[in-house]
Design a protein around this nucleic acid. Structure first.
Length: 466
RNA sequence: GGCCCCUUCGUCUAGUGGUUAGGACGCGGCCCUUUCACGGCUGAAACACGGGUUCAAGUCCCGUAGGGGUCACCA
């Protein structure tokens, strides 16, 4: 079995495209087949090298590893033309000399008459007279007009369309280059693609493409048309819904690739009550039969939840590296080692890399610390006195371990007759500048004796409002 | 508009004739607790509507409504 992902390089790796690629990959791996990548760059005007790189990079990041070499459709135009010529020879295609203006007029008439807009086949049975000699022409498929075409779609089920609905589409443009319709069919055939798994928006195309397959006498591939992804409001995913490219999920939203894969997999597909599914299990369980037929809405909240799950389980060193990259804006030199040590406490509290980086700020914040509003509020009243006592008691701790600092803090709490929470909060504010942070004893240890005492002293000497 | 497809909690889904219609996200409450998270328990929340078929329908059939896709010398 051979599947493929065939994006056109006009921007980035679309989130919906990533899901299509994922399903193709999973299907191939599940059945022990191949997963290929083809770049559909026949539209020179819209295709860019940057877009190709963005797609390749996005796929690598997602772990969507394809087999064999990448196929570039643009390099195969000679072969496409060859097939078109063969179809011309066999009578399955014909030359059409209708001009763009002529066709536009035809469509305008059809629109006005509320008729379906289709090519009327005006050159279907007409041979080129001397007046058209040397004039530009396109090559069109001579599609059957009677009967119907049936596709047993692996996702959508049996779908039937009357052949009268299908017009004679263009195979070769007047400049001799192939249209998408011709190119996909030829490339899929030549690449040995057995299962064409792609977006629902191609279902109608499949009927027309099948016409070429049949004309050439090639084996019909199995089609599987996946429902499209929609935004939270039910409309087709577009810019106004936010992030569209996978790199935005990586860079802007701070999503881990395994989380995105898991989320995308669950969109339109399910395996009982399973929610957290490893890649290996996905390969083991995935098949097209389980794919739903209705479009699903993208829910960032659930993505974030899954992301939080994977962050908690991720390697501390890896996370530290990722966070360090995000902290580059901070002038203070940061320490990946410290981040790594702090990570177990940090990652418990973040559902994306941005929150993780934000939660790590205090480790490197320069003294005297800036207090946010909530922290400042905690330092009002008798906080200065309390911090002075904390400073005095903590100063006597020689061996700066979590157990020892905890003992010291509890001692102050007991002596002052103040509940631990009331002691911990001002202390947290003094140490982190925030009202929330990892456990206060962890913070003390992470910061170290010297830095901790200095931060507390800052608050005592500068008073509560500093 | 023509053609094609879709319709279970707000969202993602389980469910393949007989279930108190299950799980997850989100939301509310409680517990844990030095804050925030995590975790645990718990609550509210769905079979679009109308006809059939059947002893029995979320599950099958037909309509209706709503939604989506597609109608290029773009892919």
């Amino acid at each position: 079995m051979v599947t493929r992902f065939a994006p056109s390089p006009t921007g980035f790796l679309h989130i919906g495209g990533a899901r299509t690629a994922l399903f193709n990959l999973l299907f191939a791996r599940h059945h022990g087949g191949k997963f290929l990548l083809r770049i559909e760059d026949t539209d020179a005007a819209r295709s860019t090298q940057e877009a190709i790189e963005a797609i390749v990079e996005g796929m690598r990041w997602m772990g969507l590893d394809w087999d064999d070499e990448v196929v570039f459709q643009s390099q195969r135009i000679a072969r496409h033309a060859e097939v078109a010529a063969a179809m011309l020879d066999s009578g399955h295609a014909y030359r059409c000399y209708a001009t763009a203006e002529e066709l536009e007029a035809m469509r305008a008439e059809q629109r006005a008459a509320k008729q379906p807009m289709r090519y009327d086949g005006r050159w279907r049975d007409r041979t080129c007279g001397p007046e058209h000699e040397g004039q530009p022409f396109v090559v069109r498929l001579r599609a059957p007009r009677e009967g119907e075409t049936v596709i047993d779609d692996a996702v959508q089920g049996r779908v039937t369309v009357a052949n009268a609905e299908l017009d004679d589409m263009v195979l070769l443009r007047s400049d001799g280059t192939p249209t998408y319709m011709l190119a996909v069919v030829v490339d899929d055939h030549d690449m040995g693609v057995t299962h064409v798994i792609r977006g629902d928006d191609h279902l109608n195309n499949a009927f027309r493409q099948l016409g070429i397959v049949k004309a050439m006498g090639w084996p019909e591939p199995v089609y599987g048309h996946l429902p499209l992804l929609h935004g939270h409001d039910g409309a087709k995913l577009s810019k106004r819904h936010g992030a569209l490219g996978v790199e935005a999920y990586r860079d802007d939203l701070g999503i881990l690739p395994e989380a995105l894969e898991n989320y995308l997999l669950r969109l339109g597909w399910g395996h009982g009550d399973d929610e957290i599914i490893s890649h290996d299990d996905a390969v083991r369980w995935f098949d097209l039969g389980g794919v739903g037929r209705s479009p699903s809405r993208f829910d960032v909240k659930k993505l974030e939840h899954i992301n939080g799950h994977y962050i908690r389980g991720a390697d501390d060193g890896r996370l530290a590296q990722l966070v360090a990259e995000r902290l580059d804006e901070v002038p203070h030199p940061h320490d990946v080692r410290l981040l790594t040590v702090a990570m177990p406490a940090l990652k418990m509290r973040a559902k994306d890399l941005n929150e993780l980086a934000d939660g790590a700020q205090f480790l490197f914040a320069p003294r005297p610390l800036a207090m946010d509003a909530a922290a400042a509020a905690l330092l009002e009243g008798g906080a200065s006195d309390l911090l002075a006592r904390l400073h005095a008691t903590l100063s006597r701790v020689a061996d700066w371990t979590a157990a020892n600092v905890e003992e010291a803090v509890r001692e102050v709490s007991g002596e002052a007759g103040i509940k631990l929470g009331k002691v911990a909060q001002p202390l947290r504010a003094a140490l982190t500048g925030r009202a929330t942070s990892p456990g206060i004893f962890d913070v003390l240890v992470l910061l170290g004796r010297e830095e901790s005492l200095a931060r507390i002293a800052d608050r005592v000497s500068q008073g509560v409002n500093a």
